[in-house]
Design a protein around this nucleic acid. Structure first.
Lengths: 217, 217
DNA sequence: CGGCATCTTGAAATTAGTCAACCGTCGTGG
DNA sequence: CCACGACGGTTGACTAATTTCAAGATGCCG
């Protein structure tokens, strides 16, 4: 269970008679709107959330897909700097920013684990910076599939798994067009590196994918 | 002085008879090698440092240019996940990772400011994710020039300033080729949006640049 | 079964990258 | 003191990768 931290925060709240409401979101529903006033901090407890940023002309970039244990809205900025949308059924706990600050001041244990968590995120996002800036479309998709496979099946990388997100989402995550993603899926399929039905994917040649992904991961 | 945090960390060290050696680096010298064992945490006190990651085939992506006040090597990972190189004369304080952990445990004040700092970095890097994934070359360079101008001259955005980094560095920062950067500089110059000599740049039409950058910043 | 979403595929267009030549500056050594 | 070479920057011509536009195919839900 990797949401120990969220769990402990909720516990802390109840122990101190602080409100920490639970809320549910159906797939496709909006959790946080970009540029809205940041009243709350959200603890993701179940499901997968898509974080994205967008530009005037409708282009958008998915900053990350996050799951249970992730904490949203910790920045001290006045406004949310991203959009959060449920892609599966999602459960969150919601607490006011002020309360969250309070907890950090009064529970140094939580503070230090949050720092650890945030630092880890920084490291992964730097990896993504490299991918977005310097990888080719093939390399991007190969890394993505490998990461999703491990995220779903842990070490059993060859087991089939279901992509929870649409082709458009994958495209926005990798900085590509949906058509390119679709084409590459077909090519990987033809090249017998993956087996693909609509949502289900199975990696047939993870080692070839890995060498193509150009990443030691 | 935005390196108050580093300053306080150094103070804490000296007060507790902990070693926190000062070191100097000339331009182009290597401060941290990617994948080396992460023995130390570095506090940047003066100068500008280039942080980058690279791929097998020689492609590389600059993760950020950071200055006084920035702290390197805070991740709990065994190895450094990036390379750090001085681009100007640089002064750092260096302390062992164990000691750094110690400080965080014993100085909750520093811990909480570090979290704040790290969270802020996360927000800016997300902005960069959008830029790398979804902006065109023109938009990337326009945003870059605007940011550098404000970084150098604060609000006086029209004052000339010197780019401390080479065209190749700019390219690696924006995920472009040096030729593209060079060409765009010429085009912006022709279009009278900037005045450019080798290292000196002056923004002539910041508002046009801003609208081109597609960023509300 | 029909209609709408998403996905796939193809052809054309465009952007940015590669390769190659050239220029200018700076520093070094003859 | 000048010539040379190295390096960074610029420019051009060409190439390759990816996007865009457009048309179908597939599958899902009412």
């Amino acid at each position: 269970m990797p949401d120990r931290l969220c769990h402990d925060i909720v516990n802390f709240c109840t122990k101190h008679h602080a409100t920490c409401r639970e809320a549910r979101f159906a797939p496709r529903s909006l959790i946080i709107e970009e540029s809205a006033t940041a009243h709350y901090t959200f603890l993701v407890r179940r499901g997968t959330v898509k974080l994205s940023k967008s530009m005037p002309n409708g282009r958008s970039q998915i900053v990350g897909f996050v799951g249970a244990g992730h904490i949203l809205g910790t920045s001290s900025q006045e406004l949310y700097m991203f959009r959060a949308e449920a892609i599966t059924d999602v459960t969150v706990n919601r607490l006011s920013r002020a309360m969250f600050e309070d907890i950090l001041v009064n529970a140094p244990d939580i503070l230090s684990r949050l720092l650890e968590e945030t630092t880890a995120q920084l490291v992964t996002i730097q990896e993504r910076l490299l991918a977005l800036g310097r990888k080719t479309a093939r390399e991007k998709l190969a890394s993505f599939l490998l990461r999703e496979a491990t995220r779903n099946n842990g070490p059993n990388i060859q087991l089939p798994f279901s992509l929870q997100m649409s082709r458009a989402d994958i495209a926005d995550y990798l900085g590509l067009s949906t058509e390119t993603v679709s084409r590459l899926m077909s090519i990987f399929h033809q090249e017998k590196m993956i087996h693909r039905s609509r949502q289900e994917v199975r990696l047939l040649a993870p080692s070839r994918l890995a060498s193509m992904a150009c990443t030691i991961l």
